[in-house]
Amino acid sequence: MIPIIGLVIGIAIGVVLNPDVPLWLQPYLPIAVIAALDAIFGGIRATLDGIFNDKVFVVSFISNVIVAAFIVFIGDQLGVGSQLTTGVVVVLGVRIFANVASIRRHLFKA
């Protein structure tokens, strides 16, 4: 409940402030968002598994974001940034799907 409220608050802040994404952050923000989504769904799944741990969640959230951004950064340096971005998005998307599938199985047993 509280995280959902936080999500709404965060979206509202973003809409109201409408900040400009700094140029250096532009390639990494979308990847970081997807990585954070992955961590969120992982956290929900862990909650349903009964093994949720806030410390692990925070660490995984932050490290997910950092690692995803770092991979894209490395890719940019190597000249394969767009391909690597696609790869990261695919991997994270697959993981999100897997987590959602697990959540769904927990909640609906289907």
Binding site: P3, G10, I11, V15, A36, V58
Partner: peptide, 20 residues
């Protein structure tokens, strides 16, 4: 509280990214 902070961060990032 941690979840709240994370969610605020994520929501902020999402809306910022969507708008940009």
């Amino acid at each position: 509280v941690v979840g709240l902070l994370m969610a605020i961060l994520l929501g902020f990032a999402i809306s910022t990214q969507v708008q940009s």
